[in-house]
C-alpha cells in the first residue's frame, strides 16, 4: 500500500523546500504521496512546476495559516 511522507520544510527559503522534497523522493516508492509543508511562497509555485517538468504528479496545493501544503505523487 502506498505510503505518505510529510516533508516539513517550514522556515526554509528557496530552493530549500524543493531540495528537501527531492531528497525525500529518493527514498520513496513509486505511487507514494509526499506532502511538503512550506512557508516560502516561491516554493509553492516552483515545486508544482518542477514536479510537472520531471514527470511526477502534483495532486494538490492549499494554504493554511501561512503554511503551504503541496502534495505530490512519485510517478517513476
Amino acid at each position: 500500500m502506498p505510503g505518505k511522507t510529510v516533508v516539513d520544510a517550514r522556515g526554509s527559503f528557496c530552493p530549500g523546500p524543493l531540495m528537501e522534497l527531492i531528497a525525500a523522493l529518493k527514498s520513496c516508492q513509486v505511487g507514494d504521496e509526499l506532502e511538503v509543508l512550506s512557508t516560502d511562497r516561491g516554493s509553492a509555485n516552483d515545486i508544482p512546476e518542477w514536479v510537472r517538468k520531471v514527470g511526477h504528479e502534483h495532486l494538490a496545493t492549499h494554504v493554511e495559516a501561512g503554511v503551504w501544503h503541496i502534495t505530490v505523487r512519485k510517478a517513476k
Binding site: S12, F13, C14, G16, I22
Partner: peptide, 20 residues
C-alpha cells in the same frame, strides 16, 4: 539579510547538485 534567514547554505546546495 540572508545571513539571518534559513536559506540553505551554498555549499549544501552545491553538494546536493552533485548528489541529487
Amino acid at each position: 539579510l540572508m545571513e539571518h534567514k534559513n536559506a540553505p547554505d551554498f555549499k549544501t546546495l552545491f553538494e546536493q547538485a552533485v548528489s541529487l
